[in-house]
Design a protein around this nucleic acid. Sequence first.
DNA 1: CAATGTATGTCAGAATTCTGACATGAGTCA
DNA 2: TGACTCATGTCAGAATTCTGACATACATTG
Lengths: 152, 152
Amino acid sequence: MSQNGVGVDLETSLGYLLKEASSALRVAMEEVLRPLGMSVTHYSCLELLAQRPGLSNSELARGAFVTRQSMNVLLQALERDGYVTRPAEAPVGKVLPARLTSRGRRSLEKATVAVRSVEVRMLAGMTEAEQSDAFRILQSMIHSLRDGDDGA
Amino acid sequence: MSQNGVGVDLETSLGYLLKEASSALRVAMEEVLRPLGMSVTHYSCLELLAQRPGLSNSELARGAFVTRQSMNVLLQALERDGYVTRPAEAPVGKVLPARLTSRGRRSLEKATVAVRSVEVRMLAGMTEAEQSDAFRILQSMIHSLRDGDDGA
DNA sequence: CAATGTATGTCAGAATTCTGACATGAGTCA
DNA sequence: TGACTCATGTCAGAATTCTGACATACATTG
C-alpha cells in the first residue's frame, strides 16, 4: 500500500499534530503540577475561579472542557478539602456561585507560576508574529469546528 | 482584582486556546464517529494500523497518546471482535505486531471518510500559507515542550 | 396565566483510563 | 559469560470521566 490513498496521513495531518501538541502540553503540565499534588483539571478549576469568581459548576465544566457531572465530583472534593466554598442555598435559581477560599488562593499561587513556566517554554523560539499567527489560526479552527455542529 | 496580575489569563493564553481547539476537534470527531459505533481512540488505533501495519501495542499507545495499558484493553476488545489480529507468539522478543483484518479495514473506511471531513471543516477558511504556518508552529510548540522534559 | 423549552445541580452506574507491579526478552558492557 | 539497563505485554485495582436520569428554576411564548 502506498503512503496515502484516501486516508488522513498522520505525518501531514494538522488534526493529528493538534492532538500531539495538546498532549505534550498536558504531559508537561502534569509534570510540574504533580509535585504540588495537583492534577490538570484540579488546577484548571482553581484558575478559572481565580479569574472569574462566582462561576457555577456548569460554567466551570465548560471552561475546563469536561461534563458538569465530572466537574461536580471535583468541586465536591475541593469543597470538602477547603479550597472552594459554595453557598448552601442558591441566591437565584439553582445556580451556586463558587469562590476560592484563602487556602485555595494560596494553593493556586505556586501552581500558576509552574504552569506559566510551561507556557513560556512552549512559546520559546517563537516570534511575536508567530504567536499572534498561532492565536488567530487556533481561533479559526475552533470557530470552523463549532460552526457545523448543528447549523449546517 | 484586575484582569491579570501574575496569572495566565485565559483570554490570551495560547495554552488554553490549544486545549480549546483540541477539545473542539475531539468533540467534532466523536460526533461523526458515534453513528459508526466508534470512539476516537478506537478510530485512532485502526487508522494507525492501516498506515503502519505491524505496530506493537506499545507503539500504538504512543501514537494514540494513551498508556500502553489502556491501549492493551482496547486491542484485546478489537481482537475479540475481529477487527485486529496478533500472532499468538512473538516472532522476536515480546513484541506482538498487530494487523487489521479485512473486517477492520472495512470498518475503518467509513470512519476515515468521516474524520477527513472534520479535518477539512477545521481547515475551512484557512489559506495554504496559514496551514503551513500552523504546521510549523505546532511542531515548534511540541519540540519546545518536550525539550525541557529531562534534558534541561 | 399556562405550557413549553432550556439550563442547572445532583445521584447512580458504566466505561475508560490511569498507576502500580511483575515477568520476560533484547541490548550493552565489563 | 554475567550483570545491568531498558522496553514490552499483561494483570489487578484505583481514579477519573462519562452517559443516563431526575427534579427544579428561569425564560419564552402562546
